[in-house]
């Protein structure tokens, strides 16, 4: 089955799967070569490494989105250097107007046409509903794992689910954790090789009780409405993804703040670690406001590579100091 590589949380895996293709939402790691556009000053490292990583996956196609300008332009840059089919999905920044929703729906249809051109099969409505039900069930199962897995295991399970569409449940259940300080990890997408942050927090008496990064539970769409799912699955798909996922890129970005407030309350969060990538303007610009808004201690990690040799120790020390502060 052809794999369609993407990274944007607003691309519904269900839509790709319903076309008979394998949706594969990946997280790049560091040190993944320079076989795509060279390092360019001012270029988001995540966008660049995603391109490198996507090429290595030998994909049937790569789907970029306009969620940020860097990715929008990276799609063009990569398109000039590879013969792999590339689709640029226009995710509107606004979300409250009928026009924005219409653009999103229209883009889903356009993506569908692209997929059919590149080996996919146009899905019947009933089949799309079935695929959506299956994903909905799996996501619920996934969310349920939070109680049983360590924070790192849970976040990695989400990443794996995005990548493979299946849930790996063979991780050892976590023991009962008492007196761990609940912390939120907030920000843009993680890199595959920096999940050690979870361990560092745990080693210092904390627990990342909320993974609000782009690759964590923040970007899981809402459950589907069963009636709409039968009547108009595509519309319901658009609603669940476009209408409910809180993100820093949305204008206005009020959903993000509302979601965060709710989750901080529900999970009793005591401190926030904000991690974003250098040159990511969208997160960078929001950090000060998030600090003011949350009213909780905040640690920001924004190095290019939190775990580059020289940085690892520094990051560990900063997390240790932060956890001490929370205690």
């Amino acid at each position: 089955m052809k794999r369609i590589i993407y990274s944007c949380p607003f691309i519904p895996a269900e839509w790709l799967a319903a076309h008979g293709l394998h949706p594969c939402r990946i997280l790049p790691g560091h040190g993944q070569g320079h076989d795509s556009p060279d390092t360019l000053a001012g270029l988001c490292q995540y966008a660049r490494l995603f391109s490198n990583c996507a090429l290595r996956e030998s994909p049937g196609a790569i789907v970029f989105s306009t969620l940020c300008d860097q990715m929008r332009r990276m799609a063009e840059l990569l398109g000039r250097q590879t013969s792999i089919p590339i689709f640029l999905f226009n995710v509107p920044s606004t979300w409250q107007s009928p026009a924005a929703r219409q653009i999103y729906l229209h883009e889903l249809v356009r993506l569908g046409r692209f997929l059919v051109t590149h080996g996919g099969v146009e899905p019947k409505q009933e089949y799309l509903s079935e695929v959506m039900k299956s994903y909905d069930r799996k996501r619920e199962q996934l969310k349920g794992l939070r109680q049983h897995l360590s924070a790192r295991q849970f976040s990695e399970a989400i990443v794996n689910f995005h990548r493979s569409g299946s849930i790996e449940t063979n991780a050892n259940p976590k023991g009962i954790e008492v007196d761990k300080l609940p912390v939120a990890l907030l920000g843009g997408p993680m890199f595959a090789d920096i999940f050690e942050i979870f361990d560092l927090v745990a080693q210092n008496g904390g627990d990342i009780a909320l993974d609000a990064t782009e690759s964590g539970e923040r970007t899981l769409p809402d459950r589907f409405n069963p009636t709409n799912l039968e009547d108009n699955p595509l519309d319901e798909l658009a609603h669940a993804y476009f209408g409910t996922i809180p993100d820093v890129s949305r204008r206005p970005n009020t959903l993000l703040y509302e979601w965060l407030d709710r989750m901080i309350r529900e999970r009793g969060i005591r401190g926030i670690i904000i991690r974003y990538n250098t040159w990511c303007d969208l997160w960078h610009a929001e950090v000060s406001r998030l600090k003011e808004h949350a009213g909780l201690p905040v640690l920001t990690l924004h190095t290019e590579n939190t775990y580059a040799p020289g940085e690892r120790l520094r990051t560990a020390t900063r997390i240790e100091a932060f956890m001490d502060l929370l205690k």
């Binding site: 306009t66 940020c68 300008d69 860097q70 929008r72 226009n90 509107p92 920044s93 606004t94 890129s249 204008r251 990511c280 303007d281 969208l282 960078h284 610009a285 929001e286």
Partner: peptide, 10 residues
Amino acid sequence: VGATCDDFSA
């Protein structure tokens, strides 16, 4: 907003 630079949007 939309197809604009991140600097300005942010």
